[in-house]
């Protein structure tokens, strides 16, 4: 228990990085996932194919490889640099990789949601003269989102836990890295281990409850 108290501040600092990554990735993944699903249901075959290819490639690649590619491929080889400060650069490379990865799951959850919207809704939207894009953003997606609030919650929970593999992109500041670093000096500590588990659960459990409650509240009556 003593080591948890002693190293608590350092671990907390690491955990704050996980929280920051989660917040940034949640926004980027939701936006990108919505763009991807729009491509996948668009009437343009090229966009549909591009969306499907992206989702199938990225979703089936292990996250550690996506993050390694973000750091080694995009940053070192292609020259994508967010900041001269390696800590800040590393943060954004993880955020980028995790967002690109999580967006595929957001996309597929939303696509399942679109399938719950009766076809007549899209026909009625077209029949009053809405364009494809208007039908999608005003009629289809709002109903699709409401149908998949709970699954999106699961995607977000998985994403929050996935921030702990940030080290794969060479980002040496998140709580999992701090924990391993600490174990190198203290030896394995069960209290530290459990402390981190509790910290994650304190974030993810409420998300599960909240999205479950929201999904009932927002459900579209038919």
């Amino acid at each position: 228990m003593n080591e948890l108290i002693e190293y608590g501040p350092a671990l907390w600092e690491g955990f704050v990085q996980n929280l920051k990554l989660s917040a940034v990735c949640a926004i980027m993944a939701l936006v990108l996932g919505t763009v991807l699903v729009s491509m996948r249901v668009s009437p343009t075959p090229v966009l549909r194919a591009a969306g499907a290819a992206y989702v199938n490639i990225v979703r089936n690649t292990p996250l550690t490889l996506v993050l390694a590619f973000s750091a080694l491929g995009l940053s070192d080889q292609v020259g994508l640099v967010f900041s001269d400060d390696p800590a800040i650069n590393g943060f954004w490379l993880v955020a980028l990789g995790l967002s690109l990865y999580t967006a595929t799951f957001v996309c597929e959850a939303l696509r399942a949601g679109i399938n719950t919207v009766p076809f007549g809704q899209a026909e009625a939207a077209r029949a009053i003269g809405l364009t494809f894009f208007q039908s999608l953003t005003l009629i289809i997606l709002p109903q699709a989102f409401r149908a998949v609030v709970a699954p999106l919650g699961s995607v977000m929970i998985a994403m929050i836990k996935n921030t702990t593999v940030a080290v794969a992109a060479g980002y040496l500041a998140d709580v999992a890295f701090v924990m391993k670093d600490t174990f190198d000096t203290t030896g394995v500590s069960i209290p530290i281990f459990l402390g981190i588990v509790v910290a994650f659960m304190a974030v993810t459990l409420p998300i599960g409850f909240l999205t479950g409650w929201l999904s009932r509240r927002l459900a579209v009556a038919r």
Partner: peptide, 8 residues
Amino acid sequence: FQSFNLFA
């Protein structure tokens, strides 16, 4: 439409 198709 037969099935109304009001925006739900």
